[in-house]
Computed example of a mutant assay.
Amino acid sequence: MQFDWQFFWKSLFTPSDAFLEGLTLTIVVSVVAMVLATVVGLAIALMRRSPYAVIRWCASIYIWVIRGTPLLVQLVIIYTGLAAVGLYQFHDVSLLGLSVKAAVQAAIVGLTINESAYIAEIIRAGLDSVAKGQFEAAASLGMTTTKLMRWIIVPQALRVMVPPLGNSFNGLMKTTSVLSVIGVSEMFLVTQSISSATFHTFEIFIVAAIYYLALTTVWTYIQAWIENRLSRQLGIEARVSLTQRLLGARRPGAPVAEPLELKEAR
């Protein structure tokens, strides 16, 4: 069995409509799930910092359960398990003129729940990275909690949270491949269908791998841009290059990121 180069190049540069639809669905589900997971994760992280023990325990149990069970199991429970026990069944709905299938809804819910548990810990760690003295100083100045978070804590915590949040989204795009188990026609399931119909398994899966790599590479560039923008706002000279982000390469003796005010104080 020989490698069909003609089929490979055709699939790579002129993919079928079904493949492009799967690619689009992969991107849409990833973005929507990440946005929702960030909102839920923020809420869970704030619950972890609540002065009430019951709220803290609820958040901790949520993180423990979600992080301790596989995403695949969670998807099956959400999509088929809830319907089997009569709690809830997903149905196709029309949203802004678009038809959203039941499996896609369940996929977004499942990814949101799963990812939010990890994001909650990222946000918690980011907030904890800010010195407690700044909280006390803001309180002594009479700042409200909202102003404290908006102007002092969040800008500093974001610099710590952006890299792991970006990595989470990077992993989320690749994790969408498991959505095929509940029948979501994302890129991986479409690739399987093309493989079964054409018997060009090796060729089409290499094409899919290249497209996954392209998606993660584009996001890596966006992530580096976001980190550099935050660095400029915080007065940090060192910049993250795309080569450094992709390959971990750094010039020998290159300076480590350091706020300008620290350098001026020396």
Rank of each mutant, 00 (worst) to 15 (best):
V154Y: 03
Q89P: 00
P15F: 10
L165M: 14
R124N: 06
V218T: 10
I77D: 00
F19I: 00
G248W: 06
F8L: 06
V207W: 03
D17S: 11
S11Y: 00
A209V: 05
E136D: 11
K10M: 05
I122D: 09
P255Y: 00
L87Y: 10
I78T: 04
V181G: 11
E121Y: 04
H91C: 02
L230A: 11
V32N: 01
A197R: 07
L260V: 08
Y62A: 07
Y62G: 07
I222T: 05
L141A: 05
V256N: 12
Q105G: 06
Y79F: 15
S231D: 12
L260C: 00
A131M: 01
I210V: 14
R229Q: 09
Q89K: 14
L12Y: 02
I119L: 15
W219I: 03
T191Q: 11
V54E: 07
F205C: 03
L230I: 13
G126M: 09
R266Y: 07
I123F: 06
T198S: 15
I222V: 13
K101S: 10
I210K: 01
I66H: 07
T80R: 12
F7V: 02
L20A: 04
A257V: 10
Q244M: 12
E258L: 14
F188D: 00
L230N: 09
V32R: 00
L96N: 11
E258K: 14
A131D: 14
L42S: 15
G81T: 08
A59F: 02
H200S: 11
Y211Q: 02
W219K: 08
L246C: 08
I206W: 09
E115H: 04
I153M: 05
T144K: 07
L148S: 10
R266M: 06
G171R: 08
Q233R: 15
I204L: 08
A131T: 06
M34H: 05
S60T: 14
